Amino acid sequence: MPVPLPTDSARSNLFARFAERVTAWSGSTLVFCMALGTVLTWALTGPMFHYSETWQLVINTGTTIVTFLMVFLIQRAQNKDSLVLHLKLNELLAAHKGASNRLINAQDFSENEIHLLHRYFDVLAEMARKDHDLGRTHSVEEAEDNHVAKKQAHHKPR
C-alpha cells in the first residue's frame, strides 16, 4: 500500500504540529526534571498516606496513561525519521553511478528478499576478505559481471 505524499495541507495539520511539539518538548531536560520531581514528591508523600493502595494507584495510573500516550507519539516521530532516512539513502543510491538501483526502497522488500540480499552481501564481504583488501568495493553488478566472466573462463575448452 503506497504511502500518501505529503502536501501543504498535511504540514499544517493540527495533530502533526501538536505531535512534533510534544515529542520535542517531552525529550527536554525540563520535562525529565518535572517527571523526576513528580516521582520524588509522590515518594515523599508515602508516609503521609500510610503507603496506601490509593497512594500507589495514583503513580501507577499516572505513569501508565503517560506511557500509553507517549508510545504513539514516539512511534510517529520514529516513523517520520525512518522515512526521511530512507529517502536520503535512496537519493544517494540513485545519484551514485556504481550503486545498485535495485536497493532503492529496500525497506519495502519482503523478509525473504532482505535475507537473500544479506547472504549476497556476505559473499561480497568474503570476496573482499579473500582479496586481502577490505577497502576494495564490489557493487552487485560488478560481482555479477565477475561471476559471469569466471564462469565463462572456467567452461572454456583448453
Rank of each mutant, 00 (worst) to 15 (best):
L57W: 11
H132Q: 06
A19Y: 01
V71S: 11
H138Q: 03
F121S: 12
S52I: 03
N13T: 00
L57P: 02
L5S: 12
D81L: 13
C33L: 15
Y51V: 02
E144P: 00
L5C: 13
S139D: 03
N101W: 01
V140H: 08
I74R: 06
T63S: 09
D145N: 04
V3C: 09
S110Y: 04
H155E: 13
D145E: 07
A16W: 03
T7C: 07
V66T: 05
N101T: 03
A95F: 09
K156F: 06
Q152L: 11
N105D: 15
L117M: 14
H132F: 09
N79G: 06
K97V: 08
A94R: 08
L116T: 15
R158H: 05
R21S: 10
R129H: 11
R17I: 03
M1C: 12
V84D: 11
T54P: 02
G135T: 07
V71Y: 08
T54C: 02
Q78W: 05
V84F: 10
Q107T: 09
V140T: 13
K156E: 13
Y51N: 06
W25G: 02
Q56F: 13
E126D: 14
A99E: 08
P2M: 13
E144M: 14
P6Q: 06
N90M: 03
R129P: 00
S139A: 01
T41L: 15
F49I: 02
A149W: 09
R119D: 15
H132N: 09
T38Q: 08
A43E: 11
N90K: 04
T23F: 15
L14R: 11
Q78V: 04
I74P: 00
Y120R: 10
V84S: 12
M1Q: 14
L30P: 00
L87Y: 08
T23G: 06
C33N: 12
W42M: 03
K150S: 11
P47K: 02
E20C: 01
F32Y: 12
E53V: 04
K130H: 13
G46E: 10
K97W: 07
V148T: 09
V22S: 00
Y51T: 00
E91N: 10
N112F: 15
A99S: 14
S110N: 05
H132T: 04
N90P: 01
G37V: 00
K80V: 05
Q107F: 03
K88R: 13
W42R: 01
Q152H: 06
G98H: 07
L92R: 07
L116H: 15
V123K: 11
T63Q: 10
S28C: 08
G27N: 05
L89T: 11
V140A: 14
T23H: 11
H154C: 07
S28A: 05
K150N: 11
F18S: 14
F109C: 09
E20S: 03
N13A: 07
